[in-house]
């Protein structure tokens, strides 16, 4: 089966890609770049790094830009899947949805309309276990967005490792935040993963933060040998 992965460049879509590639043929990545930082559907920090990630993976990228207005952005996602179907003859799409029924429902409906399969290989998986899988499989993932109390700017740019996971799980117990950021508490950017043929090196970055909201923006990056 030829598949396109809905790819934000964050940990969930990259892990979903990793799992999909073990079972089927992944032929392209599909990215929706939202101009709306509050998008309900799409991961926003460092979405432009997806071009570099696609190059690192050796996969073509289908990219559409959306204004990010609620529900209208879905029409843009549909356009992107239509384009991927036309250009790369995909039979289905893969998403990194874990818990969000809102996200999953909308993507399932689009796929059904377009007569393509929809796969969510991380669906309902234990969030701590997913984070541990990333570390065990040598994914290099940095926190690129924080959007919940008590997270602050000291978290931005941090690489997810066993220590960070333990702290996130602690915060889950104390404040009810989702350790993998399923409630939008954190966003991530993947710099290296098993399928990457080259890894991403950050040349320049900036932190924009106010209280418990902030982003780690990669302003310049390059591919380097692994």
């Amino acid at each position: 089966m030829r598949l396109g992965v809905l790819f934000s460049g964050g940990k969930d879509s990259t892990l979903a890609l990793h799992l999909a590639a073990q079972k089927e043929q992944v032929v392209c990545l599909i990215t929706v770049a939202s101009k709306n930082k509050e998008s309900y559907m799409f991961h926003t920090p460092n979405i432009d790094v997806t071009a570099l990630q696609a190059e690192a993976l050796g996969l073509p990228l289908v990219r559409v830009v959306t204004e990010g207005k609620k529900e209208e952005e879905l029409a843009d996602l549909e356009k992107a899947i239509v384009e991927a179907k036309k250009k790369f003859q995909i039979d289905g799409v893969v998403t990194g949805a874990v818990e969000s029924v809102y996200q999953a429902t909308r993507i399932q409906r689009i796929c059904n309309r377009l007569n393509v399969w929809c796969f969510n290989p991380l669906w309902k998986h234990d969030q701590k276990a997913l984070l541990e899988t990333l570390v065990a499989k040598n994914f290099k993932v940095v926190i690129s967005g924080i959007f919940a109390y008590p997270l602050d700017e000291t978290w931005l740019g941090k690489q997810i490792d066993a220590k960070v996971i333990a702290r996130l799980v602690e915060l889950q117990g104390q404040y009810g935040i989702s350790p993998s950021g399923e409630g939008g508490e954190i966003e991530t950017t993947v710099l290296d993963a098993p399928m990457f043929k080259q890894k991403i090196e950050i040349v320049e970055s900036a932190v924009e933060a106010k209280g418990n909201c902030g982003v780690f923006i990669i302003t310049q990056a390059r591919l380097v040998p692994k």
Partner: peptide, 15 residues
């Protein structure tokens, strides 16, 4: 067997 849909439709039941 061992399909890409296993993790989505079977694993959550098993959990």
């Amino acid at each position: 067997q061992d399909s890409l849909a296993f993790g989505e439709f079977v694993s959550p039941i098993v959990s």
